[in-house]
Nucleic acid binder design. Structure first.
Lengths: 235, 235
DNA sequence: TTTATTAATATGTAGCTACATAATATTGTC
DNA sequence: GACAATATTATGTAGCTACATATTAATAAA
């Protein structure tokens, strides 16, 4: 914003953003058409287009063919959330990563799981419950369901030493996913596992992944108390 | 992914993504250089570049000048989180929106707030505590601090009928922001305000906004029980 | 006045050339 | 062999032309 970007299109983007920030163009206002604005700012329409698309992506402006470009009146706070692989996250914080398998079963999942994965008809899945450790202390409790129909090979994988996620990311790349973030009061068992008090609030992150509409996995990650997620505006 | 995109660059993006999904290129593998891959897929380098940049943005591949393009081995789950203005969110769910001011004071904020806003030296701020209602029932408890140095005019605004956010979005566009998501066990007072049991887990979303490094506001939104955030992979 | 058709227009995309930039490879020197 | 200088190379950007597409605006038909 205040600094001068190296490349031209970023420079143009910041200048247009600046015109919005300083009130030259206010929420609801219409911006000049690309060709005119480009001439005004001394760049090609291509370059301005690149800049405008970036601003549209971050939710600052809205562009419509023929309708032109307007400053959004309902600026959604569009943040980018990066959820890394747990092992890397733990190691990045300078801890030694550990993994401990709690239970492994094969059964038909409850309706809540099959519905979340948009499964047409429920089928047998592999359920894996495990702990992720940081310097020996519980970092995260994982409750995972893996589709034995989409990923039959997982049944033969040894999950006592490595997380199912580690195997999945290199063998079943996902095409798309959903994430659900909620708060949860942990019960006696969970409290004991993640080192919390009974009833203490913890952040729960659920993730559903698919490969071409075929369900891969549903993971429910119960974080230890005090854990929080950070997100920020895209540059 | 499985569907055919209308535009060429989206089509190319999906085809390259497909080569990763079907295992032609696996995590850690190097993709052909743009020129060759473009020739192989029958498009211009410009078009392939557009497609590759999209894949790089979503965290699927990694591109480095001279170094080439590689499939990421540590695929971060990069999700887009849209946090709308509360009033619009409530109305979108078909409820009647209501707003109720609880308290309004002017004071120097605690260190936690000024630190979160990266304030060099603490200065007086306007504190506003208010309730957002959906069909008369509490939807969200807001605890906001607004910088009287960056936004002195806010002192004259009537905040008994409209949310401070409504005024801010049209008068002080933000240049960047941070978001913090955590779980919280609500105390007696909070429980009573948002209609929860004491100690019940609720999702807390904190947001810090700036305009050119000058702090605008710090909001702590305590959601009612059961509230959750949804995010998903970028198309 | 209403409705269907047609024209006008702003943004979106495809491909081109040319050059910039950041890394990596190579070469030369000590 | 170690290190600095130089060449090479893959991606990144700027600008161009031409055309596509979605919508609005204008016009004609009912």
């Amino acid at each position: 914003m205040s600094f001068v970007a190296r490349t031209s299109w970023q420079n143009v983007r910041d200048r247009v953003h600046g015109l919005i920030l300083d009130g030259t163009y206010r929420p609801g206002d219409k911006l000049p058409r690309d060709e005119d604005l480009a001439a005004e700012l001394g760049c090609a329409r291509t370059t301005l287009h690149r800049a405008m698309r970036a601003l549209a992506d971050t939710g600052i402006i809205e562009r419509r063919r023929k309708g032109g470009t307007t400053v959004r009146t309902d600026p959604v706070t569009r943040a980018t959330l990066d959820i890394p692989v747990t092992r890397l996250e733990v190691e990045a914080r300078g801890f030694t990563y550990g993994y401990h398998l709690l239970e492994r079963t094969e059964t038909v999942p409850p309706a809540l799981i099959s519905a979340a994965l948009k499964m047409l008809k429920p089928h047998r899945m592999l359920r894996v419950q495990a702990l992720h450790l940081a310097d020996g202390r519980t970092y995260l409790l994982e409750d995972r369901w893996v589709s034995l129909q989409t990923v039959p090979e997982i049944a033969q994988v040894d999950l006592s030493t490595q997380s199912a996620n580690e195997w999945l990311v290199r063998n079943r790349p996902v095409s798309h996913y959903d994430i659900r973030i909620s708060a949860h009061s942990c019960d006696v068992k969970e409290a004991q596992l993640i080192g919390a008090q009974e009833g203490q609030a913890v952040l729960v992150v659920e993730r559903m992944t698919w490969t071409n509409d075929a369900p891969i996995t549903h993971v429910r990650a119960t974080n230890s108390p005090g854990f929080h997620l950070m997100a920020s505006s895209r540059s």
